[in-house]
Design a protein around this nucleic acid. Structure first.
Lengths: 194, 194
DNA sequence: CCAATTATGGACTGATCAGTCAAAAACGGA
DNA sequence: TCCGTTTTTGACTGATCAGTCCATAATTGG
């Protein structure tokens, strides 16, 4: 019916994601993008709309994937506290080049703050399911007597979230893998019942 | 000897800081800056070098001031745990417009990561004294039996730092003052000896 | 009052920005 | 083979970017 697209859309999206991830939105030019994606300018606009739409699509796919990984790490271990530790430790890649990119989602918060309603809507949409899983695991930990029964679960969940942000921002700032892994374990240990 | 400058350099620097703080480096144009600073273009370049030098100067002054405020809050209360709580709670302004700007230093980490050696040097220089004060207060807390003696002080200090980052990033993302104050208190409470 | 020096305002620079246009090319269906 | 549709290519757009130039203004020491 029509000429087929020559490039792999998903691969191009991934390449674009990597550029945004490393450099942020504002510092990334469309030239950077088409270069990294290996496609022509018009193909770029045909397939992805414009720079902002591409960013939104990249961020959405990134968050979806990241959340799924997080939930996997959180729920796989038998013990709730182990799950929480795997969640936090698993945020921090051993590979320097990966780790020092930090988190695209946090980058988006830092760059746009509350200025973009569409981004805020996306954040809320993405966080909800994940947060529910964290709460579930925290409750389970309290039920098993592994987590301090004095702790307020909602606050603990928020605390896990900001700890994730803090770890990832430290990673972007150049902190070492070993140090951050230890710090992740330290944070989880603060929940343990004694 | 020569014509005196007509504007207040410190006030102009403060105005520039506010713009960088809200929008980040890349998204701020020199036009934004001269507008906010209320000075002419040439005066801008005469007095501050260029956009990057101005950013470095703004960030340095910001960090110096912020660190001094943090240390004040940390050391004023008699009780170490109260000092740590004041430190974290004091990060979060009640005023919405202030709070949702987050922290310029964290913004710089998010925007530049490890790509700018001059920024990394500044970060290390700024963190050192503050971290020492946190460690001092933590040790005092352990000595007084207020802080869990099992806790490793170095890790606890790093943990305080990432908690600060996490809180400020959440503030930039639009989290409420009450929620973040409670979260700050929650974090400190994790240290208490029982 | 003049000379030296610095500050100011506004026009100007080439580079880069995001995004568009038009024509050629590659396909499937008739 | 030819048509309708979409992709590709590369040139092109006006806007904005960071930074400079220059003529004029304001100041102080001589």
């Amino acid at each position: 019916m029509a000429r087929p697209r020559e490039f792999d859309r998903d691969a191009a999206l991934k390449a674009a994601t990597d550029v945004f991830w490393s450099k942020g939105f504002a510092a990334t030019s469309t030239e950077d993008l088409v270069q990294a994606m290996g496609i022509g300018r018009q193909s770029f606009y045909n397939a992805f709309g414009d720079k902002r739409r591409l960013y939104l699509e990249a961020l959405e796919a990134y968050q979806r994937n990241a959340t799924s990984c997080h939930i996997g790490r959180l729920t796989t271990p038998t013990s709730p506290l182990d799950g929480l530790r795997d969640l936090l430790v698993g945020l921090i890649p051993d590979d320097d080049a990966l780790r020092c990119r930090g988190c695209l989602g946090n980058g988006s918060v830092g760059e746009f703050g509350i200025t973009d309603p569409e981004l805020m809507e996306m954040r809320e949409r993405m966080i909800a399911g994940f947060r529910a899983k964290v709460i579930e695991r925290l409750r389970e930990g309290q039920r098993l007597g592994q987590i301090d029964p004095e702790i307020d679960i909602e606050q603990a969940a928020s605390f896990i979230e900001i700890t994730m942000s803090g770890l990832q921002l430290a990673a972007r700032g150049g902190a070492g893998a070993q140090e951050l892994h230890a710090l992740a374990a330290f944070a989880v240990e603060r929940f343990r019942a004694r």
